Amino acid sequence: MIRAVPLRVAIVGLGWVALHRHLPSLMRSHGFQLVGVIDLHEGLAARTAKKYGLPFHAQTENLCDVPWLDQVDALTIAAPPAAHAPLVLAALAKGKHVLTEKPFATSVSDGEAMVAAAQNANKTLCVVHNFQFSRAAKKLQNDLQKNRLGAVKRITATQLGNPKRRLPSWYETLPLGLFYDESPHFFYLLHGLAAGALKLRHAYGVHDPSGMNTPSSINLLYSDDRNIPLTVSCQFDSALSEWHVMVTGEKATGLLDIFRDIYIRLPNDGRHNALQILRTSVCAFAAHFWQHIPNGLALLRGRLDYGNDEIMRRFAAAIRTGKPDDKIDAAHALAVLKLQHEATTALQSNMF
């Protein structure tokens, strides 16, 4: 079988996500050939191109200033969120396929304009919603498909965030700050786990006592077509950084540890007697231990990709086939963006 010639791609914006997620995944990709980098900071694009042996680089925030842009088929956008819409629109106007980081845009109107521009240009527009393709998330999805959890009773997404961890410099400029930047992950995960549309039932938040735009905490309650509760609970001033999704079923409970890329299935513990309690402990310890060994080594080597390799594979396939991928396409991105804004508006009106 003859492998197709890789699509030529360049990265726009060389922050942490670009250098530690986009670039490694593109370098590993069989569907793309990374040929250039673009960044507005002095010397960064040139240094990155030299380090990785790339033929092209440009120091600019305006794609019109890039003389070699006709040498690429696609762009990945890893610039700050406020730049997503103008960069995506400029790239589509130049006939490029585009993959942009989350959050898709900073307003629903910008998101709609991006979707319309992609349709008018007949180009592929996708979003990086990567955790749904992590190894652990796939195990959870497989358990649900095989009914190993039984009838689902509740889905809970929980985030604890330590403010001392590595954070982007621009997050406080967003609506509700860090919530807006990080919440797409939970929205697309819940969107994929829900039966039908997510219906917002209640929302409230707690102001940060120091006056930051990012709240101290937020809580969201949704329901779906099964009329089960789906909740999002985030604390942004925690002493610990953890992201988890829990799916509670009649037969078992599935626990997704997002940061460690670990999935644990714990069986129904019945009467909760001593043997059943010990069984739960053994199941939890064994599953966590045996996944933590390979994942810990991959993390130390910078190879724990959190689904980004799959994102690049799907983006390339969507370009080649011309068929939208409903897990990452523009319609999916816009649906998640609308969930973001619905929640943000509800939270802003009910903060204490």
Results as ranks from 00 to 15, higher is better:
G53M: 08
A49S: 12
Q33M: 05
L44S: 09
G43C: 02
Q33H: 08
A46F: 02
L63R: 12
A46N: 09
I38F: 00
L54V: 10
P67N: 05
E61H: 07
P55D: 06
A49R: 10
L44T: 14
F56V: 07
P55K: 14
N62M: 04
K51D: 13
G31N: 10
T48I: 13
N62I: 04
K51F: 03
Q59W: 11
L54D: 07
A46R: 12
K51P: 01
P55F: 04
A45W: 02
L34G: 04
L54G: 13
P55E: 04
T60W: 01
H30W: 00
Q59E: 15
H57E: 14
S29E: 02
A49F: 08
Q33F: 00
G31P: 02
H30N: 11
P67V: 06
A49T: 10
P67I: 03
F56Y: 15
T60M: 11
Q59F: 11
P67R: 02
N62T: 03
Q33T: 14
E42A: 13
H41A: 13
D65H: 08
V37E: 02
A45Y: 00
I38E: 06
G36P: 08
E42C: 05
T48K: 00
T48Y: 00
L34F: 01
F56E: 12
L63K: 02
E61Q: 10
L44M: 11
S29Q: 04
S29P: 06
E61D: 13
K50H: 14
A58R: 01
K51Q: 14
S29D: 01
Q33N: 09
